[in-house]
Nucleic acid binder design. Structure first.
Lengths: 167, 167
DNA sequence: CATGAAACTGAAGTACT
DNA sequence: AGTACTTCAGTTTCATG
């Protein structure tokens, strides 16, 4: 699981942006091909890629895996309300739910709920068991609202937004 | 954006599972190192990796990018109710919202809403503008509920679940 | 642009079923 | 016999200074 953490403001020029977009669409591209696609020398491409990684812009290269193929045919988003919503209770719940095998993502939110948990499980029976057995075994869970996910589209390439007021 | 599609049932043995886990944690590992980590020959590792890709288990290698670094310091989940929730209206809305620059993911759901849209924008002003300008310009949007995301943890490695009843 | 490393291919060979 | 894996040699491509 990743944590968001505060970092120094990062300045990205056009080349950084191009490299990021190419790598997002294929993280296993060779440095040669990356360089060619970004229209720079391989040396420059390599330097920039390393810099992006060391500055924390690139966290890691990961795999987009088909969830049904790995025995997780059912996905859901589960909105959870926590009582009391103190830091201690929130963080303890977050850490606990992150470790569960069913969990693929955790959103800590403000609004109508405190958490939205993204789970991927084998089938509806497992989803039901997750909600009524595991979640409700926690006494801080005051309310649970489950939405079954029919379809999950994910943007493969997330574009870089220019700072407000730029160009 | 990816689509979920029906596929033949996929059978994964222990080696496939090991390879999937290694690649999920570092998609840019060399085949040699992958083979060593999975304790098989490079030839075998290469064959398996290709097979996993051709069977659609591995969709693509992508990059985990730090959103604040690319000008997207604010994330939100926006629950949307659509009227009427007919196939035609749902699919049209889904396709439209997928193309928006702010959108990083779209969940099509059953439950308390029809969509949950994951957006990542520059700041709160942009989030507000997205909700009150762009979303509500669509007449099929009957209801909108925004939850600001304080933190988003994502499981880097999603384990393979054994079929029900298997060992 | 040179050098060493890695990827890939195809052909045999081994082992377990 | 068939499947899965390994080893090896040869060629091509790549990373890196």
């Amino acid at each position: 699981m990743n944590d968001q953490q505060k970092r120094d403001p990062v300045l990205l020029d056009d080349l950084d942006v191009r490299i990021l977009e190419i790598l997002q669409s294929d993280a296993r591209i060779t440095n040669r091909d990356l360089a060619a696609a970004a229209r720079v020398s391989p040396t420059t491409a390599l330097e920039r890629t390393r810099s992006l990684r060391s500055r924390g812009v690139i966290r890691q290269a990961t795999l987009d895996v088909d969830l049904p193929s790995i025995g997780r045919g059912v996905q859901a988003l589960i909105a959870v309300r926590i009582r009391p919503p103190s830091r201690q209770v929130i963080e303890a719940f977050r850490d606990w739910v992150s470790t569960l095998d069913e969990t693929v993502g955790v959103f800590v939110t403000a609004g109508n709920e405190d958490f939205i948990i993204h789970v991927a499980v084998r089938d509806n029976d497992d989803l039901y068991a997750f909600v009524i057995d595991r979640l409700t075994e926690r006494r801080e869970v005051a309310d649970v609202r489950t939405s079954v996910v029919y379809q999950h589209l994910r943007e493969n390439v997330v574009s870089v937004l220019a700072p407000r007021g730029a160009r």
